[in-house]
């Protein structure tokens, strides 16, 4: 589904991603760990196609299509969907109307979907105007449910969210990735929805309690290392911080990295 080859990305004159290789097949959810400032958000923004992120080398393939330089809306129409961390307020644009437009011409049961994320009473409000952390997440998920992407990019689903919201957000994210529970849909439907892939950034790992994630990796200083099961990565990081990953990166690259960076990182 997604294939990233030797991706180098600059923000302004600074190289932030320094050669990323990553493949996410259909139906798989990939978890990205890494200290602050390592480039995780940059990777997601680059995959979505934001203007500030310049690809200087490498390639992004999605469903076999080279989208390295494709405009954002083409990526969205091809099936990439992103949950924004800090989405802008658009005055006069009703949330319900935006959700409807996310369907791209497909009829969307806005009311029905809104109920699922407990968002019915927000449909008449301007999008993101005064939304709390949890409300932003629910609004983003609602838009994604209407959009039905095949690859979901989700940056820190836990941030700014209380426990009650976390459970709702986690369950909804799972539904987006794994399809509806078998009771409410046919096996055939479940199979087709199951093609949905995910790329999720997490610090706390709370989201792992809800989604079935198959693989994970750590980003450090613009590079990926330490591929393992997400649970194991999380356990490791909580015990040892990120320094193991650093060792592994240094040995791979023969590069001397500064351990001091890590103390504040985790």
């Amino acid at each position: 589904m997604l294939q990233i080859k030797n991706l180098h990305v600059n923000i302004g004159d600074v190289e932030v991603l320094k050669g990323i290789d990553l493949t996410i097949p259909e139906g798989e959810t990939f978890i990205l760990f890494g200290p602050n400032g390592s480039g995780k958000t940059t990777l997601l923004m680059t995959l979505m196609g934001f203007g500030n992120y310049t690809v200087t080398e490498g390639q992004i393939l999605f469903k076999g299509v080279d989208i390295t330089y494709a405009p954002m809306y083409e990526r969205a129409r091809l099936g990439i969907g992103m949950s924004f961390q800090r989405p802008p307020t658009i005055h006069g644009l009703k949330t319900g109307h935006l959700v409807k437009m996310c369907g791209q011409g497909r009829t969307v049961d806005v009311e029905g979907l809104a109920k699922k994320v407990n968002f019915s009473r927000f449909l008449d409000r301007d999008i993101n105007a005064g939304f709390s952390g949890g409300e932003i997440k629910r609004s983003e998920l609602l838009q994604l449910m209407a959009q039905r992407p095949d690859l979901i990019l989700f940056d820190e689903p836990e941030s700014g969210v209380d426990l009650e919201n976390m459970s709702l957000i986690g369950r909804t994210a799972r539904e987006l990735l794994d399809g509806l529970q078998p009771a409410s849909c046919t096996m055939k439907m479940a199979k087709t929805v199951c093609k949905t892939a995910g790329l999720i950034i997490t610090h706390t790992g709370h989201i792992l309690e809800y989604v079935n994630a198959d693989r994970g990796q750590v980003m450090y200083n613009g590079r990926l290392c330490c591929e393992a099961r997400p649970r194991d990565i999380l356990d490791h990081i909580s015990k040892h911080g990120y320094k193991e990953c650093l060792r592994c990166l240094s040995s791979e690259n023969g590069e001397q990295l500064d351990l001091a960076d890590f103390r504040e990182a985790y």
Partner: peptide
């Protein structure tokens, strides 16, 4: 960009924002 990430092209996104502004 927010609206383009939902699949609108630049003209559609602009028109949507303008409509909101005038609303």
């Amino acid at each position: 960009e927010y609206l383009m990430a939902r699949g609108m092209d630049e003209d559609e996104a602009t028109a949507t924002i303008v409509r909101g502004f005038l609303n």
